[in-house]
Amino acid sequence: MSIETAKPLADVVEGVKALFAEKFGAAPQCVTAAPGRVNLIGEHTDYNDGFVLPMAIDRQTVVAASKRDDDRPVVRLYSATMKGAAELTIEPDGAELPGWAKYVRGVIDAYREAGVDVPAFDAVIDSTVPLGGGLSSSAALEVSLALVIETLNGKSLPGPQRALLCQQAEHQGAGVPCGIMDQFSSALCHADHVMLLDCRSQQPKMVPFTDPTVSVLITNSNVKHELTGGEYAERRQQCEAAAAGLGVKALRDVTPEQLAANEAKLDPLPFKRARHITGENLRTERAAEALAASDWETAGELMYASHAAMRDDFEITVPEIDKLVEIAREIGPEEGVIGSRMTGGGFGGCTVTLVRTDKAEEVARTIAERYKAATGIEATCFTTRPAEGGRVLES
């Protein structure tokens, strides 16, 4: 097994432009790109007004687009990723759309509600962001489409406003009540930096991650447990119940010590959920300090502690994900592993592991071999450095 390498962005761009010309008979007027993201630490803290520490990955969603030159108020789309087409009216008409096009519907509606004129346009979409692995392929699509609308309209919005409109698009278009992390990451991250995001003030702080001897290894368990759909909402409700029981606006306002002193005020389940959140906020701030100081030992310890809390207190890991983290820990620092944890909403998906760059290939091979021996499942691995957020490539 070898580490998967990203298709170069230039190749994706050329492919999208060629496909646009084939589908619509002319060269596109603009090309935009926005990345997926991985969260190094700070899980389920965003809707608790807490802290998260994501970075953009070098997998992108690329969109080539042009204004339509007729009077039809429609958007025509072709997704190379999904190998399908869709047509949307600018004004919502309630038409049933394929799942991926619902995100586009959401972006169009969010911009129109914000008073931005959305022109009729044609677009071709392609993506190298893995789907369904918790790496925010949806946010990458939303941000790249938002940049298309702004470019064709000639109106550039501030990055935070763009991110919030894309969050609104996910809420309304796809019905997912996500926090702000995914869209802020895709819209605002910088190359060679992670982003410490205060989800209450919505203020991002860029933290240097410039040491070339350390890389981020993302391992997809290729497991996504079937959910009833309510687990995310359940966790959110449990956190809100804990905050109400403690008399605070959000769990951001409680320290681990205060929580322990007030355990009697909460039922056991909300208490466990709150114990993860209060500890995770502290871990996330400390991890940002550790990364800025290249204190890799501390960063690794915090990642393992975060995973344990997600497993035991928040109960969002699954056996396959736990096995991946266990294997990484067994490999250990002498063989190149600094720290590892589940990343994303939970119940499957990916782990994120800090590794020594010169050992990354060997670490990935060992993790994949031991994981397959334990589970019978093939994992897929790739490394990334912190990448640049959404941008207009051609206009």
Rank of each mutant, 00 (worst) to 15 (best):
L9Y: 05
A10D: 15
A10I: 07
V13P: 01
V13S: 08
A18V: 12
L19E: 13
F20N: 08
A21V: 04
K23R: 15
K23Q: 15
K23T: 15
F24Q: 15
G25V: 14
G25R: 08
A26Y: 02
A27S: 12
C30V: 12
T32G: 03
T32V: 11
A33L: 05
A34Q: 00
P35C: 00
P35N: 11
G36C: 06
N39F: 08
I41V: 09
G42K: 00
G42W: 04
T45F: 08
D46P: 07
Y47L: 13
A56G: 13
A56H: 03
I57T: 01
T61I: 08
V63H: 09
V63K: 06
A64N: 08
A64I: 12
S66T: 05
R68T: 00
D71A: 14
R72I: 11
R72M: 10
P73Q: 04
P73C: 08
V74E: 14
V75P: 01
V75N: 13
R76Q: 12
R76I: 09
L77T: 09
Y78H: 14
Y78E: 12
A80P: 05
A80G: 11
M82H: 12
K83Y: 03
E87L: 14
L88C: 13
E91P: 00
E91K: 13
P92H: 05
D93C: 08
E96V: 11
E96I: 01
L97P: 02
G99R: 14
G99K: 12
A101Q: 00
V104W: 04
R105T: 11
R105V: 10
G106F: 02
V107H: 10
V107I: 06
I108F: 06
A110C: 09
Y111G: 01
Y111T: 07
Y111K: 01
R112P: 06
G115S: 04
V118A: 07
D122K: 09
A123L: 10
A123F: 06
